[in-house]
């Protein structure tokens, strides 16, 4: 166990110091966001256990050790936003906005955004407010609003899995392929996660499909 932690620490050091190709889904992808509360690791969108619902998972602040996670928080100055295109033009028609305030995550929408693009204004009042689940909690805290939206916010195991170390060796020229049994570089690391489950009936798309992307923004 100590050994695997050491390996992860080394991998993190390599990520920080290495100038080579990184492929950590979206973890630490660009200079302006690396190491900040705006750094997205992954976006997942899938059908819920109740197939009438769609689940949005937005993860930020990746590659956290358990010790780091114990003191990690969301940032009141950062909005986490899911953008939804309902007609295939890759412009958002609805948004789900997640804003942390006073120990709780406020979830807005899905609602027509005040503007499209890179900036965001909080629209209306929250659809659901959920206390952030503390690291020490044994069960996740969830809340469901009157419109049927369920939300969670707090630390979770990073669901991403990849032998990033071996990929580095391949791209660095010291290996020619992956191992017969790979090693998950993200094993044992956590993220800060927002999970929002939304009734499919709340989407304005009439084509049976939507396009989704995730953004973070900060207050001035």
């Amino acid at each position: 166990m100590k050994n695997s932690k050491l390996i992860i620490a080394c991998a993190l050091a390599a990520l920080t110091l290495g100038g080579g190709i990184l492929w950590a889904s979206d973890h630490a992808d660009a200079p302006k966001v690396t190491g900040k509360s705006t750094d997205i690791t992954d976006l997942y969108v899938f059908q819920g256990a109740n197939t009438n619902n769609l689940v949005f998972v937005g993860n930020v602040q990746g590659l956290m050790s358990p010790a780091t996670t114990a003191t990690a928080t969301f940032d009141e100055n950062t909005m986490i936003e899911f953008k939804i295109d309902d007609n295939g033009d890759n412009v958002e028609d609805q948004v789900i906005q997640c804003v942390y305030k006073g120990g709780q995550m406020y979830i807005y929408g899905p609602v027509k955004p005040a503007q499209t693009g890179l900036a965001a204004t909080v629209v209306g009042t929250a659809s659901v407010v959920v206390p952030v689940t503390p690291y020490s909690a044994t069960t996740p805290i969830t809340a469901t609003g009157s419109t049927g939206i369920t939300a969670f916010a707090g630390p979770r195991d990073d669901p991403f899995f990849f032998d990033l170390n071996q990929f580095h060796k391949i791209t660095g020229g010291t290996a020619t392929g992956f191992l017969p049994t790979g090693n998950d570089t993200f094993a044992g690391t956590n993220v800060m996660s927002v999970v929002v489950e939304v009734p499919k009936s709340m989407f304005t798309s009439t084509t049976g499909k939507i396009g989704v992307w995730m953004q973070t923004h900060q207050k001035m």
Binding site: T38, D42, L43, A119, G124, A126, M214, Q215, H217, K219
Partner: peptide
């Protein structure tokens, strides 16, 4: 609601 109308104008990260 403590956040209604709050503006987040500084671009952060983006992923699909």
């Amino acid at each position: 609601d403590p956040n209604t109308g709050a503006v987040f104008a500084v671009t952060g990260d983006q992923v699909g």
